[in-house]
Design a protein around this nucleic acid. Structure first.
Lengths: 223, 223
DNA sequence: CATTGTTTGTAACTAAGTCACAAACAGGTA
DNA sequence: TACCTGTTTGTGACTTAGTTACAAACAATG
């Protein structure tokens, strides 16, 4: 265990695994650096690797038959992809797509080695299952969000959660619509409302939050 | 292996397991018969048992903060509950509710024994993971259905899929609304439309399908 | 047959989502 | 610079879904 690869720093629990299958998995792993907008996997693809994300940002989204797109979740530093887990464990093909949003470093463990560690190491198995199990909860929350009618509240919440330190959000209305699972025009309408009341200032691909308090009040139901 | 319990007939794969932990799990299992409308678990409950459903019907649903109710999935003969799996594997508390709709026979394996077999038997583990993994796909499909705007199409599909051999559906409008994640009035409106065009005949808690072809055409987009 | 709770019908209203554009803008190229 | 092209945003008219607040019909029970 003296030559643990550096990337395991991001996954402290896994660093404690002492198992030959794990050693083999690490030996057969490969580190990749994916450029922005790289398509990690498509709906219908088979799954060849388990994925540890070291750094960067990747969007996992579903393209519905209606043409509407919906973000299921995002992967960042120290995370693993639940859909990949699902496909590896349950078989079948990817039911959604993933694309990098920023340059992303990741470690890939081939499916074969993944299964071996999964069967051999309790620690690894616990880790994989825990991450995976958490995602069902997330999906239920997503369901709740989507069935909730008030887009303005969800929009305000999203803006507050995703604002930069300078209190701005650099995103187009179209992208926001994907995030919230709604239509571009609906987003535009609400943003214009927010602008009328001076809660935000709008410019191309940029939203500047001005009155965070009011936005926050809206989210918490105070108005 | 000469004294396999009879209920394993419903789970043929599991009958092949030859593992002391599995034997122990079976020994410590209990068979229960739950009356209709029995509340199997609530949101916020801890999970004490893995559940094999032998027979009957159980509805797993989420009660949203808005007060709206939404059916996540149903359990029937030969199935196991994914949310239970999720909670057992990932920890935490039940994120939804379950209630029997008909008298339901089930076998309960205590959490402790479940974990032991899960760690010990590859066959058992594969089974659990496969069932579990499949549910994420279902949830994504549910998401798609909910974001799809045309309630009439989803309603027609539901009626066709759930009709009795006599071509009727015994269900109230309120229950249908829960199934499809919408409001009772919306269901009533569409059913009345269906009745106007003589696709169905309505009476209290009963919908008789008359023109399955037209309903089916609606589903497949032919009108 | 009166009471009670459930189921269904209805109308008026608000919000979301769609459609079909037009206008503004950014980046490259002649 | 002026032009072209693709993207982003604005807008209005329209359809559908969801909400609110009832009333009426019905089933079961005492």
């Amino acid at each position: 265990m003296s030559e643990l690869p550096e990337w395991l720093n991001e996954f402290p629990e896994l660093a404690t695994i002492d198992d030959p299958a794990w050693t083999r998995a690490i030996e057969n792993s490969s580190t990749v650096v994916l450029p922005p907008d790289y398509e990690v996997f498509h709906e219908g693809d088979a799954c060849k690797n388990y994925i540890f994300v070291l750094d960067g940002a990747t969007r996992v989204y579903k393209l519905f038959e209606s043409g509407r797109e919906m973000v299921l979740y995002r992967l960042g530093r120290g995370e693993t992809c639940s859909l990949t887990t699902s496909v590896l464990l349950a078989g079948g093909l990817y039911p959604a797509n993933a694309v990098t949003e920023a340059e992303t470093r990741a470690v890939l463990i081939p499916a074969r080695e993944f299964h071996e560690v999964f069967n051999s190491s309790t620690i690894f198995r616990d880790y994989v299952c825990r991450v995976f199990g958490g995602r069902i909860r997330d999906m239920i929350m997503l369901l709740e969000a989507v069935t909730m009618r008030n887009v303005n509240i969800r929009l305000a919440r999203w803006l507050l959660n995703n604002r930069s330190p300078e209190n701005t959000v650099e995103v187009s209305h179209r992208e926001l619509a994907f995030e919230l699972g709604t239509a571009r025009e609906v987003i535009s309408r609400h943003l214009r409302e927010f602008e009328k009341t001076s809660w935000v200032r709008l410019s191309r691909k940029n939203i500047e939050l001005i009155d965070n308090q009011s936005l926050s009040d809206l989210v918490s139901g105070a108005r």
